[in-house]
Design a protein around this nucleic acid. Structure first.
Lengths: 182, 182
DNA sequence: ACCTGAACACCGTTCAAGT
DNA sequence: ACCTGAACACCGTTCAAGT
């Protein structure tokens, strides 16, 4: 990549992260280009679809979540490890509100720019789920896709301003449902 | 209301229900007016904000849900009654996909056209929740707003095409979380 | 190679002009 | 009273013209 292109690319990502944090994942692309001081066509050259931009923004976070899952694998309680990771994943999604919808859609669409990233993330969660299931901490009638679905529901709840006072409690209720009943 | 106005009003509602069923709650208002064979200004005269139109569409369903809650009050198992009502409510919301977001927002916004309807619906759910709690069938650390939040999460899940194969199972997982642990 | 911005086809919303 | 559709300010997306 040419030096000026690289510079535009990186700057667009910085600005996009900022605007998406403010306005959500469906923020105006025109606005992003404007605030980056770049032509609209330049944004499209680097990120031909909105998903491609989102993927570039989320990849870093997904890598962090995968690393976190690795750490938690070694922790004492398999159940707590799963819950802690889920809490982290919800927080990440909330930093890009509305993105969870694209993520859930991408898991079943191999053509989506987000597909690979989301699969990686699901795999990270699955590893923690499986360990929790083997240790008897998590219910056994769930797979990684179910976990991803519940993550979606939790992230959606966290994105609703009117439910903010209830967000933590609702997290406990749903996350608690994954843990095995005696 | 003048006879011609009444006719436009009712016809707009019929067409809107159709278009919203096809395209979701964020369907194009222009499209609705066009398909109703009516000027765009006429739609706005009858339904000045999208929420007002949505409210008109949903009111009928909400009334049905309230009636259903009344019937279920008399059923044998308080836990099953709550679950059955929740299933019904999710199905209703799914008939207007995307509307659940406005509904959840409206519950905390007295200025919303949907506010009263959503409060009524929450009350219907609350009555079933309270009975289930009193009979020991439901966990006691939840109120009607929590139930409404879970309904939102369930409706959101049902609206995601990629999770369709998992929808019933995820409903059981989340709805099951409301029922009391032994 | 890469960038720009006009152009196109859409929105939601308002409002002067008509009947 | 009520209806109409042009007008305005926005979108996402494409692409000819520039450097």
């Amino acid at each position: 990549m040419r030096a000026d292109a690289r510079k535009n690319h990186d700057h667009l990502l910085d600005v996009a992260r900022e605007v998406v944090a403010e306005q959500g994942a469906d923020a105006s692309l025109r606005d992003i280009a404007r605030r980056a001081g770049v032509g609209l066509g330049t944004l499209y050259r680097h990120f031909p679809r909105r998903e491609v931009l989102l993927e570039a923004l989320l990849r870093v976070r997904f890598d962090e979540l995968t690393a976190k899952a690795g750490e938690l694998q070694g922790s004492a309680s398999a159940g707590e490890a799963l819950t802690a990771w889920l809490r982290e994943a919800v927080a990440v999604a909330h930093g890009y509100s509305g993105a969870i919808e694209s993520m859930v859609a991408a898991i079943a669409d191999p053509d989506s720019a987000l597909h690979a990233s989301c699969q990686t993330m699901r795999a990270a969660g699955t590893s923690l789920l499986v360990r929790a299931q083997e240790s008897g901490a998590a219910r056994k009638d769930m797979d990684g896709t179910d976990l991803f679905g519940l993550l979606g529901a939790l992230a959606w709840l966290r994105d609703q301003p009117s439910l903010a006072p209830k967000a933590d409690h609702l997290f406990d209720v749903i996350a608690g449902a994954i843990l095995a009943r005696e």
